[in-house]
Design a protein around this nucleic acid. Structure first.
Length: 576
RNA sequence: CGGGACGUGGCGCAGCCUGGUUAGCGCGCUUGCUUGGGGUGCAAGAGGUCGCCGGUUCAAAUCCGGCCGUCCCGACCA
């Protein structure tokens, strides 16, 4: 490609709306443009990167027996009603109505559609296993699109689905996908981590997320350096130090605490208690059921765990007035002692605790000497606590640290959640109808691109891993007005193309500085520079964007040398 | 959905508080000359419904109200 004819609208200045590095650089490099909040256009350079990533994904999916489909993005509501997700997906789903008044939606994911195909066409265990995938646009009406292309409302996802006769089959399929994902991200040059994850709205038994550690990410990951434990904090657990309780009182005792509203207030209050001796009482509505949640005073609620523990889909904190009506007191003075009218969920860390302090359900009063199991009618014990940095690893003696991560892939063992709800059964060897055992596996393609930018850039611009770079080589004559340079450049361009290399030829009549700045910005791994002095000696200069190392190469060996460097760079990418 | 901020040529901003005649600046863009290994210099140009609607006023980019849009911080996901 000749740059003079290419559409690469680079920007000198960073648009004010761009906060995260990948957003800034993808905009400045002329790769993406925003159409609306969370909706982006890919310009030619970005689309080349996306296609490289997708090509790698296809190769690796096909290698494990995947068959590529292309399913509709527009779905009838019926399908989603069958799986129950028409309601569950709530506002996150784009919904529309056709001219006859039928409800439709834009696909957020494709379990339903693939399962619908499977249930019509898969009849016998002899047809199994199946590994199906597609690379297709998904639509999600995110409450808050953000960070450029990292969290958007329309995006391209590789989604795969496996159908097996039994759980052993699913285990194999899951393992295959896991390994394919590793190869895909390795080949894209990403440094990533596999973490235990919560299944959320997908349902299912087990899932793992592929995460790139970066502050631009939105997930929090608990990590143990010692044993390698890694889990999304939605799922992570930890050892908490036991608190030795003194013997308490024969029964809770009410005492006045004027003005005390928070855990901190009560710590500071004369006659109060340290946070780890307080019971934190939260009031929530879980699918419209008023519920009390109990945690140790110094612990925080993790709503993802709450959802998982209760199966509730609509979770919200109760409003102060609702709390007053239910308990007779406002937040800050509420507690669970003596409450029988509502479900009470308590975090495991409260088990066996005695001599605790909690609200009395009377404004400005608390109770002391509370023995959790004696005085509170807990309806369910659960892990509700958000893991914090510095807590003990659940697997070893190590300590957890919390890091931010960007989710680039997620694999799920779905089991029979969809096959049962949607009636996808096959006959096994005994002639008995059994539900298909399913898995589902997703990769966010633009996130892979953005993650590469987050990981690999410097103050001058992007540094693409060569495997996904929009071009492998950038050819830059320093001065197009110089006939010798132009002629050499044209010849080299033809040679590089003839060698089947991906070349961008900067034939613009710009000054060297402009070309070099743009070159650094768009981040092509190999730059071949043609300048007057070296050209007079029959040489050009090859610079590697990643290391900035420079070498002088004779004109007639450029193609061969570029080939070698591509191989070296590719090896380097795989070694990350 | 809760909280915060912003909306002025393609990009980055000033002007607004304290209303007043042709709405400025830098970059980019066009033309000419110049320069030619890290955003060259000079000159001349083109380009703006000041987000939209309404109100106040003799007069609104500026004050008031509503709406729309965008970004950031928290709860959701590839």
């Amino acid at each position: 490609m000749r740059w003079s004819q290419a559409f690469i609208p680079t920007l000198r200045e960073t648009p004010a709306d761009a906060e995260v590095v990948s957003h800034q650089l993808l905009l400045r490099a002329g790769m993406i443009r925003q159409l609306a909040s969370g909706i982006y256009s890919f310009l030619p350079l970005a689309w080349r990167v996306m296609q490289k990533i997708m090509a790698i994904i296809r190769e690796e999916m096909n290698r494990i027996g995947g068959q590529e489909f292309h399913l509709p993005a527009l779905h009838p509501a019926e399908l989603w009603r069958e799986s129950g997700r028409w309601e569950i997906m709530g506002e996150n789903m784009f919904r529309l109505r056709d001219r006859r008044g039928s409800d439709l939606c834009l696909g957020m994911t494709h379990e339903e559609v693939f399962t619908a195909i499977a249930r019509h066409e898969l009849r016998s265990y002899k047809q199994l296993p199946q590994v199906w995938y597609q690379i297709q646009t998904k639509f999600r009406d995110e409450p808050r699109p953000r960070s450029g292309v990292l969290r958007v409302r329309e995006f391209i996802m590789k989604d795969a689905y496996t159908f097996d006769l039994d759980w052993e089959g699913l285990d194999r399929a899951y393992r295959d996908q896991y390994e394919a994902y590793c190869r895909i991200f390795d080949r894209c040059g990403l440094k990533y981590l596999v973490v235990q994850a919560s299944s959320g709205a997908m349902g299912g038994q087990e899932s793992a997320e592929f995460m790139v550690l970066t502050d631009a990410g939105e997930d929090h990951i608990a990590l143990c350096e010692e044993c390698g434990y890694a889990a999304n904090t939605e799922k992570a657990t930890s050892r908490v130090s036991d608190v030795a309780d003194a013997d308490g009182l024969p029964a809770p005792e009410m005492f006045p605490t004027p003005g005390v509203r928070t855990i901190k207030d009560l710590e500071d209050f004369p006659g109060g208690a340290p946070a780890d001796r307080q019971i934190k009482t939260l009031a929530y509505f879980l699918d419209d059921q008023f519920t009390l949640l109990l945690l140790r005073g110094d612990h925080e609620l993790n709503e993802a765990k709450l959802a998982e523990a209760t199966g509730a889909t609509h979770i919200r904190p109760a409003h102060p007035e609702e709390i007053k009506a239910a308990l007779g007191a406002y937040p800050g003075s509420i507690g669970a002692v003596g409450v029988t009218a509502y479900p009470i969920l308590a975090d495991f860390a409260l088990r066996g605790r005695r001599n605790m302090v909690t609200g009395a359900n009377r404004d400005d009063f608390h109770l002391r000497g509370v023995d959790v199991e004696r005085d509170i009618r807990v309806t369910q014990w659960a892990d509700l606590r958000l893991v914090k940095t510095g807590e003990g690893c659940p697997q070893c003696e190590g300590t957890l640290t919390i890091r931010k991560g960007l989710e680039i892939g997620h694999i799920f063992k779905l089991g029979t959640r969809y096959s049962e709800s949607m009636g996808a059964y096959v006959l096994n060897q005994e002639g008995k109808a059994v539900p298909l055992v399913m898995g589902s596996y997703g990769i966010g393609v633009e996130r892979v691109m953005a993650a590469a930018v987050e990981l690999y850039h410097d103050e001058d611009g992007i540094i693409w891993p060569i495997t996904i770079a929009p071009f492998q080589v950038l050819l830059v004559p320093v001065n197009m007005a110089d006939e010798a340079q132009r002629a050499a450049a044209e010849r080299l361009y033809a040679d590089l193309l003839a060698a089947n290399l991906e070349v961008l030829y900067d034939d613009r009549d710009e000054r060297a500085g402009v070309k070099f700045k743009d070159a650094d910005l768009i981040g092509i791994p190999i730059r071949v520079t043609i300048g007057p002095q070296k050209l007079a000696r029959g040489q050009v200069e090859i610079l590697r964007r990643r290391t900035r190392t420079v070498e002088d190469v004779a004109l007639d060996t450029v193609v061969a040398r570029v080939r070698e460097i591509i191989e070296e760079e590719t090896r380097e990418v795989l070694a990350r």
